[in-house]
Design a protein around this nucleic acid. Structure first.
Lengths: 209, 209
DNA sequence: AAAAAACTGTTGCATTTGCAACAAAAATGA
DNA sequence: TCATTTTTGTTGCAAATGCAACAGTTTTTT
C-alpha cells in the first residue's frame, strides 16, 4: 500500500490549521458519538482508543470495532437501516477530530491548504479502511475458531516478518475482534499449544508450523 | 446515503470515453483476475456477476464475495500479506471494467472529463464499499445463525419498507454471505417458521415479529 | 427435448462452541 | 500503597453448528 502522504502529519496539520474541524477530548468511558444523529460526520482518533459498541435487539453488548491512532470511524460508514444501536465510547482518555463529510468540497474560512489536499487524502484513508475491513471479513468467514486464530497469527507473522510477535490486542479484545467466545478461544489456544502449532508467552506468540 | 452522482451513468460514460480503461468480457467460469499480480488494479462489474473465491491453507474453497452491477473489487482492496489465494471468477457471463489506481492522477490522452470527475466519484464508490463491508461485519459478528438470519431479514425489510420481500440471493449464496453451513441455515429457517418469526414462500420472506 | 448442472430441502450424528462461573494474576487509579 | 477494576486461565455442561449424504426440484445448456 503505497500511501502517498504521511497520514499522521496530515491529520496533525489539519487539526491545527483548519477551522472547519473540531477536536474534542474525552475521558475513559465517555460517549464520543452515538451513530444516531450526525449522519455525515467523520471522526478520526487523534490520540487514545475508541471502541465501537453494539447493543442488539436483545440488549446484548458487543464490541464490534476498536479504533486507535489516526483511524477513521463514524456513522457515515454505516448503513442507515441497521437494526442495532451503535455507540462510540472512549476506551481510554482520547482526543477525537470531527468534521462533516458534507463540507468537504467547500472552502473553509481560512481557505486552508488542507482542504485542497483533503479529497485525495480522504480517498486514501477510505481505501485503507476497506483493506482493514476486508482483512477482518477474511478472518470472520473462516469456519472454525482454530482457523480464525491461526489465520490472524499468520498475518501478524507475515506483517512483522518474524515467527515471534506481540499481539496488538489483549486476549479479551482479540476474542471480540475474531467474534468468538473468549473462554472458547483460550481453550483453543491451549489446544494449539498442545498440538505444537504455536508457543505462547504472555502476549508473545511464536508460530511453529 | 446522498450519492451526489449517478453511479451507473458515471461508469457508462467512463467506459465509453476514457482510453485508460479496458472493458473485457468473460464467460461463466472464467477467471477475471487472480489477486496475485496487478496490485493496483481496480475492477468494476459492468454487467453480469463475479464471485470472489478463497482457497485457504487446507485447500478449502469458500465464496467470500459476490459482486454485481457497478460494484468495485480487486486486489487493491486486500492486504498484501494475506495467507490465502483469492480468485475472481465470472459467476455468469460478465463484462468487467479495469483500470489502474495508480494512473488516477494522470491525465489520459483524450484529457477526458471523466478523469477530472474520477477523484470525487471514486471516493463515493469507496465510501459505498465501506458501508457494504460494515453491514456484512455487523451480520458476521452476531453470535448465532438465528441472529444472522433475522438481522439480515430486518435490514432487507427496512430497506424495502415492506414486511414481505424477495431475497437478492439464492439460499446457497445467502449461506455463503452469512458464513454459515447451508444445511444448518435451512434448518434454522424452518425453526424460525415453526416459532412464528417468519413466513417463507420460495425466495419471498415475510417477517412476522 | 434430453441431459447436465445447480439449488432446495431434510436428517442423524459428531464436534465445536458458547455460557456460566470462579479463582488468580495483573493493571489501574485514588 | 491499598483498593478496585480488568484481564487471564480454567472447567463442566448444554446447545448450536458443521458435515455427510441423498432425493427431489428447478434451471441451464446443448
Amino acid at each position: 500500500m503505497d500511501t502517498k502522504f504521511n497520514k499522521k502529519n496530515f491529520i496533525e496539520n489539519f487539526k491545527n490549521n483548519c477551522n472547519r474541524v473540531q477536536v474534542k477530548k474525552f475521558s475513559k468511558g465517555e460517549t464520543v458519538t452515538t451513530y444516531i444523529e450526525k449522519r455525515s460526520q467523520i471522526c478520526i482518533v487523534v490520540s487514545g482508543e475508541v471502541d465501537l459498541i453494539r447493543y442488539d435487539f436483545n440488549g446484548n453488548k458487543t464490541i464490534i470495532g476498536h479504533f486507535v491512532d489516526n483511524e477513521i470511524f463514524g456513522e457515515v460508514f454505516y448503513p442507515a437501516n441497521t437494526n442495532n444501536e451503535l455507540f462510540a465510547i472512549a476506551h481510554k482518555n482520547s482526543e477525537v477530530l470531527f468534521y462533516n463529510y458534507d463540507s468537504l468540497s467547500v472552502k473553509c474560512k481560512k481557505n486552508c491548504e488542507f482542504h485542497k489536499e483533503l479529497t485525495n487524502s480522504l480517498r486514501q484513508l477510505f481505501l485503507d479502511k476497506i483493506v482493514e475491513l476486508n482483512l477482518r471479513i477474511e478472518l470472520l468467514t473462516t469456519k472454525s475458531t482454530r482457523e480464525k486464530i491461526l489465520s490472524y497469527f499468520r498475518i501478524l507473522s507475515k506483517g512483522t516478518l518474524r515467527r515471534t510477535f506481540t499481539l496488538p490486542y489483549s486476549y479479551t479484545d482479540l476474542a471480540d475482534f475474531l467474534s468468538v467466545d473468549r473462554s472458547a478461544m483460550m481453550r483453543e489456544l491451549k489446544l494449539l499449544i498442545d498440538d505444537g502449532f504455536i508457543k505462547k508467552n504472555g502476549n508473545k506468540i511464536t508460530l511453529l508450523y
